[in-house]
């Protein structure tokens, strides 16, 4: 019950900021663009998917059109997801620091709610806000492709759950940074550092950190760090597979679930022990 109230408060907080509307606005523009750009032409050779009047691929039999469309959907969803992640982190990074601000935190903490519930409520609220955006975009894209290309494969729709999960795993890391630093700017910087630099280095550790030493312990520690963090790019590859109807590897999702739990737990411990 408390959690629901907190989710509602967080959604209201986020909807009072321009960033969420900008995010929805960008999604709308992209959807309209896709609606205008995409078409299917039929000829004796088969069906051809067109983008801005250009052939995307050679004509295929009608039965194979879905596969071609799904490939395009995967590319679009991948690009947009990267956008939503970057912008979504930016838009929601302030949720925890704002709650922990001097003069405001006292109001929250004096309520009959435990600190981990406060954290979980704010976390869920922010994830809900981004989930709404993801659903809006993917449902919109599914509709556009259905109407324009006649392809109604549900994989794009179902991939929204995967994408929401990915953001949720990443947002646990954001909450951890936010609880620890209590600063929106620091949270954004640390999260971007992870996404742009550390994440890539850890992912490609065979070609980077491994080269520093052949020591097994060292490499185990490096591996440990890799698995500690949410595996955004590995999950993203799998989300693309999901959209294309290919088999997915669930390991990165399980690992990211554990990673998210660890970071949320760590944030809860930090919050519980802190004096305000």
């Amino acid at each position: 019950m408390n959690i629901l109230v907190l989710i509602r408060l967080t959604l209201r907080e986020l909807s009072s900021k321009a960033t969420m509307y900008i995010l929805a606005g960008i999604s709308t523009v992209v959807l309209l663009g896709v609606a205008l750009a995409v078409s299917v032409t039929s000829s004796a050779d088969g069906e051809t998917l067109m983008l801005f009047g250009q052939q995307v691929s050679p004509p295929v039999p009608a039965a194979d059109l879905a596969r071609v469309v799904q490939q395009m959907q995967a590319g679009l969803a991948g690009g947009l997801f990267t956008g939503i992640i970057l912008f979504g982190v930016f838009a929601t990074a302030g949720v925890i620091p704002d709650m922990l601000e001097r003069g405001t935190v006292d109001l929250y903490l004096s309520k009959p709610i435990s600190r981990w519930q406060l954290l979980l409520g704010k976390y869920t609220g922010a994830v809900t806000a981004i989930a709404i955006n993801i659903l809006y975009f993917l449902a919109g894209a599914w509709l556009v492709f259905g109407l324009k290309c006649g392809v109604w494969e549900p994989t794009l729709l179902t991939s929204s759950l995967t994408m929401i999960f990915m953001f949720a795993a990443l947002y646990a890391l954001v909450v951890f940074f936010a609880t620890w630093t209590r600063s929106t700017a620091a949270t954004i910087i640390l999260t971007y550092l992870y996404l742009f630099i550390l994440g890539g280095i850890l992912q490609n550790r065979e070609f980077s950190l491994y080269l520093i030493s052949e020591n097994t312990i060292y490499r185990t520690i490096v591996d440990g760090f890799y698995y500690l963090f949410p595996q955004i790019s590995a999950m993203q590859e799998n989300a693309a597979k999901q959209i294309m109807g290919l088999e997915m590897d669930w390991k990165p999702f399980l690992q990211s679930f554990l990673s998210g739990s660890v970071f949320l737990l760590a944030a809860a411990v930090i919050l519980k022990r802190r004096d305000f």
């Binding site: 900021k17 704002d98 003069g103 006292d106 009959p112």
Partner: peptide, 21 residues
Amino acid sequence: EPRVRRKVGYLPENHRFPGYL
């Protein structure tokens, strides 16, 4: 116990309510 605070009111010093409310 958090539930103690169900029957407790508090006016903090220099409190700040979220400005958008």
